[in-house]
């Protein structure tokens, strides 16, 4: 979704440049803008399909559970992702799955850092 926005912006600026390009400096600028577009297009075309994205989100969530650090909000995001996909709103589904992945990564980071931090809280 974000990629599409970037692509749109870049294309827009390319077109804007196009309409007013007069000299070589601007022509060069146009060339580099086009060069910038290419990788973005490639990025979009290889965007992971939803099923594997969702699989990744679910797997990461299970990892947070195993680490005993699962967050409630993650359950909501996964549920919303599944529901949106069922209703065919793929943008929303992808956004929720991506959010779930981000949250799981935070929860796993918490699990990791707490492995040593907890001890300092025990009254001595």
């Amino acid at each position: 979704m974000k990629n599409l926005w970037i692509l749109g912006l870049v294309l827009f600026s390319v077109l804007a440049c196009d309409s007013q390009q007069k000299n070589t400096a601007e022509a060069n600028a146009e060339k580099s803008a086009v060069a910038e577009v290419a990788p973005v297009v490639a990025e979009v075309s290889k965007a992971p399909d939803f099923v594997s994205l969702m699989q990744q989100a679910e797997d990461l969530y299970v990892q947070t559970e195993t680490a005993k650090h699962a967050w409630l909000i993650n359950l909501d995001r996964l549920k919303d992702a599944r529901l949106a996909a069922k209703e065919g709103d793929m943008d929303k589904a992808v956004a929720n799955a991506e959010e779930a992945i981000k949250l799981s990564e935070l929860a796993l980071k918490q699990a990791e850092s707490e492995k040593s931090l907890w001890q300092a809280r025990v009254p001595q």
């Binding site: 918490q110 707490e114 907890w118």
Partner: peptide
């Protein structure tokens, strides 16, 4: 004990 002193949740 570790559970008690470990930060959890959002």
């Amino acid at each position: 004990q570790q559970f008690y002193y470990t930060r959890r949740g959002q």
